[in-house]
Design a protein around this nucleic acid. Structure first.
Lengths: 214, 214
DNA sequence: GATAATTAGATAAATAATTATCAATATAAT
DNA sequence: ATTATATTGATAATTATTTATCTAATTATC
């Protein structure tokens, strides 16, 4: 695989890459060393041509009539996504959703390791949630700085989202995975990814009502 | 507002509509009765022209130099999304994520009411999670049929996702909000919306590494 | 009352994303 | 050995989505 051949991917392409990883990881390479775009497409109900286009951005090259080497392709996608080395993150807001995320075993597959969890409420601070001790907010800046962490997972209620984001940023965080339904104001250089359940539900609602009446 | 003027919206448009609702609901209509596309755009870091285009699909019409009537616009978007009347849903899989969703107060704003929660594990069945009694899986078909529920929220581990989906569908469910990282096989007429955290993280990872090195 | 400023909405243009076509090539079958 | 088939990857075409331009209308200002 040739890393020079990595290209800039469109947003939809980036969104699909993790699904390819899921499919690829389910393949037993002892049994099946190579995989075709049509195999992946079939599993995910996509078109083979789209799968090939998406794969092309990672720089991974397949062979005519053979397909892609499974291990190569996994490596290429992980590398493209930056999931080849573990990235450390802190989580702020150990409510329902925050707890769920702390207990989510899938993150390791995404190269993400949550190394510390913080909360403002004295009721939660000090407790252990999924093997993670919940620390007071005041400890956050020091932790972020000392461990040189750049990513924060934000699972606080809407009304605190902006102020917590500000605090994360001033501590050195430059990537925020935002689960609160708030559009954050952030300075240049800070990347925010909004994870908003309502948009998914909106799509489901509309598609469902197009199919049949509620 | 003229419901005949509703149009078919593109997927990106549908995804943005809930964000408009969030902005609109924050407006105190005693203070401000109308809203312009540029106001909404500014709050969400979009372009006014895009906001107008999106609003157009709902059939809501604004007035030159004035903008849109806030209450009208809220009604139009809610109606477009089918969120004007409460839709009932069942949730299956009361693990970390399922519990978090049960406790999520935002659903009501999305016109969604989770009326029953089911789990296969005897450890969980019978317990109360966020005021919701967890019922055994065997009770699911009856509940779905009797209450004429068409939507299911699927928060079971990956390995059970397909079989639980099958069971939901055979009970009468025709819309599945799928939180497991599995591509479900469903018959014609059943709509599946995959809510996949990994794609959001992928976008964040790539955008972040474009900005600076990890 | 005239003029300037703001804003929606229609149409058009530009950009982005998907899908199709086809040549090249490796494998399998005859 | 020859033919058929499967598959990638390049290029082209199509479709979807966003952005721009312009007109008309309404309000505010002078």
């Amino acid at each position: 695989m040739d890393y020079d051949k990595q290209k800039v991917a469109s947003l939809p392409t980036i969104r699909r890459l993790p699904a390819y990883l899921t499919v690829l990881r389910q393949i037993d390479t002892a049994d099946k060393e190579t995989v075709s775009s049509s195999y992946i497409a079939d599993k995910l109900k996509l078109e083979p041509i789209q799968v090939r286009k998406d794969i092309a951005v990672t720089g991974c090259e397949g062979r005519t009539k053979v397909g892609y080497l499974v291990t190569d392709l996994i490596d290429a996608i992980e590398r493209y996504l930056g999931w080849d080395s573990n990235k450390q993150a802190v989580l702020v807001g150990v409510g329902h959703l925050g707890s769920a995320l702390l207990g989510y075993p899938g993150f390791m597959k995404y190269g993400l390791q949550i190394v510390a969890a913080f909360d403002a409420s004295p009721k939660v601070v000090g407790s252990i949630v999924h093997d993670q001790k919940v620390l007071p907010m005041d400890d956050m800046p020091e932790t972020v700085q000392q461990l040189d962490i750049i990513m924060g997972v934000l699972t606080v209620p809407a009304e605190f989202a902006q102020s917590v984001a500000d605090k994360l940023i001033s501590s050195g965080i430059s990537a925020i995975w935002n689960f609160s339904p708030v559009t954050l104001e952030v300075p240049e250089g800070v990347v925010v990814q909004n994870e908003d359940l309502s948009s998914g539900l909106a799509v489901l609602s509309v598609r469902s009502s197009r199919t049949r009446k509620w």
